[in-house]
């Protein structure tokens, strides 16, 4: 009974394949084509953004100086991000410590909750989440602002007035992001650890002395520096990408929207990807310099 059924099914499938083979292959080609195109575009745009960023940041040391602009952008990127960083840091510390506590309780290792949370926060979550949040907030604003200035001819007006638009608009933003990000990361680390400590000690009943003592025992300044170095690199990354996207935006309001969207998305993807490679690179640096075994 089964044989004719399967034969019929096989014939049906063969006939479908003969009819739709070309369309199927075309769709497959399209899928892989767009995947390869998307990846190559990401690499191309990253390279372009880094060239743009390095060219621009060199200009900050040329006269006339733009340090007042750097400070103004640091106030926007740094000061105005503090509240959102504190909120995110606080709740990340709470959630992470609670999950780690639940896991470690199973093996009676709650003494190690503190250092585990501290390592996770200082090395990984602090810089990465700071990078993602500030890229979305300040990076998006950078791309939108420069894009609007480009399509409304304000950048042309600047150039015509004898300003170097990259020196005036781009370089201060990149430098401000580079300087502000490690400071924001430090704020994130601090708030996350304080909130984790409060939860563990006041709610979950871990001994306060043990919690902080173990952290002191296991965490080294190098762990904190590692996160801050990463945060500075993420600052360079998102500021270069977003300013590049905004600076070359075209096509009116739609173009500005696309530039902002692409700037933020590319920045976030690159923060995540580069985090892995930075982790390895820093580890490699610590090993070859003998700072860590």
């Amino acid at each position: 009974m089964a044989t004719p059924y399967f034969r019929r099914k096989k014939d049906e499938m063969l006939s479908w394949w003969k009819t739709n083979r070309l369309e199927f292959n075309r769709k497959l080609d399209q899928f892989f084509g767009s995947l390869v195109y998307g990846l190559s575009q990401l690499f191309f745009e990253t390279g372009q953004a880094f060239l743009f960023g390095t060219q621009s940041i060199r200009l900050i040391f040329q006269k006339p100086s733009r340090w007042d602009e750097v400070l103004r952008h640091m106030e926007f990127i740094g000061n105005k991000s503090v509240i959102i960083i504190c909120l995110t840091g606080g709740f990340t510390g709470l959630a992470l410590s609670y999950q780690i506590y639940l896991g470690f309780k199973l093996v009676n290792a709650t003494n190690l909750v503190g250092p585990t949370v501290a390592l996770g926060i200082t090395r990984e979550l602090g810089p990465v989440l700071t990078g993602l949040i500030v890229a979305a907030r300040a990076g998006g604003a950078m791309a939108a602002r420069l894009g609007t200035m480009r399509v409304s001819e304000q950048i042309d007006a600047l150039e015509v007035m004898g300003f170097d638009s990259k020196q005036y608009l781009v370089a201060p933003r990149i430098l401000a992001a580079f300087v502000s990000m490690p400071l924001l990361c430090a704020v994130f680390d601090f708030v996350a650890m304080v909130s984790a400590g409060l939860l563990c000690v006041k709610v979950l009943g871990i001994d306060e002395a043990i919690f902080w003592d173990k952290i002191q025992q296991w965490i080294e300044p190098g762990d904190i520096y590692q996160g801050m170095v990463k945060a500075a690199f993420f600052g360079l990354t998102f500021a270069s990408i977003c300013t590049n996207k905004g600076y070359f935006a075209k096509g009116g309001a739609k173009g500005v929207g696309e530039a902002t969207n692409q700037g933020v998305v590319n920045s976030m993807v690159l923060v995540i990807i580069s985090n892995y490679f930075l982790t390895n690179l820093i580890r490699f640096f610590y090993v070859i310099t003998g700072l860590r075994s």
Binding site: T148, S152, E153, Q154, D156, A157
Partner: peptide, 9 residues
């Protein structure tokens, strides 16, 4: 003088 003045907003 640009078409839409291009003032800094």
């Amino acid at each position: 003088l640009f078409q839409y003045a291009a003032l800094f907003d």
